[in-house]
Design a protein around this nucleic acid. Structure first.
Lengths: 220, 220
DNA sequence: GGGCGTCTGTAACCTTGGTTACAGAGCTGG
DNA sequence: CCAGCTCTGTAACCAAGGTTACAGACGCCC
């Protein structure tokens, strides 16, 4: 847990932090905790109090809303260089978490205690950075609300398939998880897409044959 | 459009502003625009650029996500003393609006230009205020996502009926609008609730007979 | 009182998505 | 090679919610 290399990685990933005052940077180095968590760990969950603000150094956190019946709806991911809007909101509002965060891979976090986070916010540069991420994530959430409230699943699936290259190596189950749905439905819909000539299917693979067609479907 | 009375009302509604530095307050007074809008006006809409930050002095703004087919899902309301998270997010991220704002009643706004809003954020007191509202609204949005993604309509209806007193003067259509659904379904569900003895129905009125039962239904 | 607009009740029907229940395909390690 | 695993295909059935189409109720104004 040497803080110097962590500090280097931190500054590389969050260049905004180089604009902090020397004092703030020292405080960060002194107080922040470097934490290693294996893949699949729940790092926070609904109703928990927020213990600190996480910078993601390596790995990623998948933030989901969990249904009573066990299904999950992904809200967003936090990857190195980003911040977690829900953690910010909980710290700022002194409210408990209202979603769950699970590591997708082995993950390294630098956790900043609550009051140090508040102090960081006093710095113009950091504040702008947090606000910026905030506003991006709000836009994402609005997009998500629009999707779950108004879009049909085939449209959401089409959108999900786009922008990831021409061949996706992924199982139907994983696609279903991304959509908050179930495997059988995704299989059924993929079959439909294949019949329209939009994709070609094989084991653990989806090949995009007609991106424009998919886009049309997704946008409709 | 005299700014003095507007200023008084503003300070009464947003007491946090009394903690601003004199300079910031003067700037506010000098630059902010007092605007009157009648009920039913669309004050901002999807894809529009954000022109300024609105303080609500009187009236209220209903912020909704509009579906392609014309239906609307209410996200939240902005009443006097509150702020609009989407406006903040758009200003901060220099992104266009991603929702629609419609006045519910005749409404008085004090609109602060973009760069003055940015300047205001430099003030600790105002920043804390905006952050605070931010975090509350995020929590609301998370709640909303949970509801539209996981809850059945009867549960959402039950929740909607609670906490508004014992007799609600409201039409089925208005309830449907709040839920982003349609009148027929709300009528059907209300009938169900009435048959369970939870409510009693009459023209433009819903009487809550069994609040505990409704809560149980809503929470399930 | 009669006409009109709003509000409510309700039935038939449809679409979407989820559930249940298997069967078979393909890989992998012993 | 074959036992067992994961992944896929698929059919039957179901529940929720939306759509369409009316009919009657109530209130109001002329």
């Amino acid at each position: 847990m040497s803080s110097a290399p962590a500090g280097d990685a931190l500054l590389a990933l969050y260049p905004i932090l180089t604009e902090l005052t020397a004092r703030a940077r020292q405080r960060l180095q002194a107080r922040a905790q470097l934490v290693q968590v294996p893949a699949g760990t729940t790092v926070f969950d609904e109703r928990q109090a927020c213990q600190g603000f996480p910078f993601v150094i390596a790995g990623s956190i998948r933030v989901v809303k969990a249904a009573p019946n066990g299904r999950e709806l992904p809200l967003y991911r936090v990857t190195p260089g980003e911040t977690c809007i829900i953690s910010s909101a909980c710290l700022l509002g002194q409210a408990p978490y209202n979603a769950r965060g699970v590591t997708e891979a082995d993950t390294t976090l630098l956790v900043v205690p609550t009051d140090d986070f508040q102090a960081l916010l006093g710095e113009q540069a950091f504040r702008d950075f947090v606000f910026q991420l905030f506003s991006e994530r709000i836009a994402d959430l609005m997009q998500l609300i629009e999707e779950v409230a108004f879009r049909k699943l085939d449209q959401r699936l089409a959108a999900l398939l786009l922008g990831k290259g021409q061949r996706l190596h992924i199982t139907h189950q994983q696609l279903a998880d991304e959509l908050g749905s179930v495997r059988e439905i995704v299989s059924r819909l993929l079959k439909g897409l294949a019949e329209q000539g939009l994709v070609a299917l094989s084991r653990e693979q989806v090949e995009i044959l007609d991106p424009a067609g998919l886009r049309r479907l997704a946008g409709a």
